[in-house]
Structure formats: C-alpha cells, structure tokens
C-alpha cells in the first residue's frame, strides 16, 4: 500500500518536472527541472528493486551530466537570448504527433493486459551480482565502453577548442 502511494507521488513529480523542461522558456529552470525529474526517477528505480541503478542514476545523470548541461548554459549565457517562438504550424504538429504517439503506446500497453505475475523471490540486484556479470559475461562491452568514453573525451576537447590552425610554426 505504501509502495503504491510512493509510486503515484513520484510518478506525478516526474511527469510535472518533465513537462516543465519542455514548456519553460528559461533553459536553466529547464535543466534544474530535469534534475528533479531524474531524482524522482531514481526513486522509481528503487521501487523496481534496483537500488544500485538508482544510486548510479543520481551519480551519473543528476550529478554529472546535468552539471555539464548547467555549465554550458551558464557559461554561454544562454538565458538572456530570447528564444524565437516556434512557428505555430510546427508547434501544433509537434503536440499533435506526440500526443497521438503517446495514446498509441498507452493503448497497446493496456491492451496487452496486466503482465504476468511477479516472481515472489527477491531480485538479487546488488553491486556484487552486477560486478560479476560485468566482469565475466560482459567484459568485452565493458572494455569497449571505456574506449568509447576515451573517444568522447578526446572528441569533446577537440570540438570545443578555438580554431587551431594547422600550419603554425614555432618561432
């Protein structure tokens, strides 16, 4: 019973802050609403018996990626640029298509009925189990992701440099 109350409360919080992300005109308020939405999602992950994933969600998403977003918004001073309003045609089509998409998804989810009953044994999802899986079965994707992150770091540094001319000779 408590779980249902917690679920509904945090589901409403998630949806409200997600709506604020797309509707508010100030990107800083949008970024902070997204942080709140991610935090509420982390509570959802705890309800799904995956506390390790919840902690990771807060550390990685809410604690690192969104800080990066906020840095970029604040350093580029983006809140002072008035965003030109979207053309009404695009706005109408956008809302209409996304609402149609949402209704289609909901229709099919409800039509599939209540998914089969949950197993009654607890889900072993702690750090030890995930660590074993990562280092035994998924070791290759793990190493590949670390190379991918290295490529992302190098790419981000190169992309955000001011134009470095290639034919500079040291004097």
């Amino acid at each position: 019973m408590f779980e249902l109350i917690i679920f509904f409360f945090f589901a409403v919080v998630t949806i409200v802050f997600a709506l604020m992300v797309i509707l508010h005109r100030n990107p800083v308020v949008g970024a902070l609403s997204l942080v709140a939405s991610f935090f509420a999602l982390a509570v959802m992950y705890i309800l799904l018996e995956a506390p390790f994933m919840a902690a990771l969600q807060v550390i990685v998403y809410a604690g690192a990626i969104m800080v990066l977003f906020l840095f970029v918004i604040m350093l580029l001073n983006l809140q002072h640029q008035a965003e030109p309003p979207t053309r009404p045609v695009q706005q109408f089509l956008g809302f209409f298509l996304s609402i149609a998409f949402c209704l289609t998804l909901l229709f099919y989810i409800v039509k599939a009925g209540t998914i089969a009953a949950l197993p009654s044994t607890p889900f072993v999802s702690d750090a030890r189990a995930i660590g074993y899986a990562l280092f035994e079965k998924y070791i290759f994707p793990f190493e590949m992701v670390s190379i991918l992150l290295l490529a992302a770091i190098v790419g981000a540094i190169v992309l955000s440099q001011r134009g470095v001319s290639l034919d500079r000779r040291p004097d």
């Binding site: 797309i22 990107p27 959802m44 979207t86 809302f95 298509l97 996304s98 949402c102 998914i115």
Partner: peptide
Amino acid sequence: IPTHYFLILSAILFSIGVCGVLTRRNGI
C-alpha cells in the same frame, strides 16, 4: 507494483521527450 504501471509512466515520459524535440527551437 504491477509492471504495466511503470510501462505507462515510461510511455508518457517518452512522448513528453518527443514533444520537446519536435516543438522547441533551443538546442539545449
């Protein structure tokens, strides 16, 4: 909590994201 509750929440969040991508002009 039954699984389809979470699936419904996920569908709503996904379509809110789709709406944001289609409607806004600010890149961030």
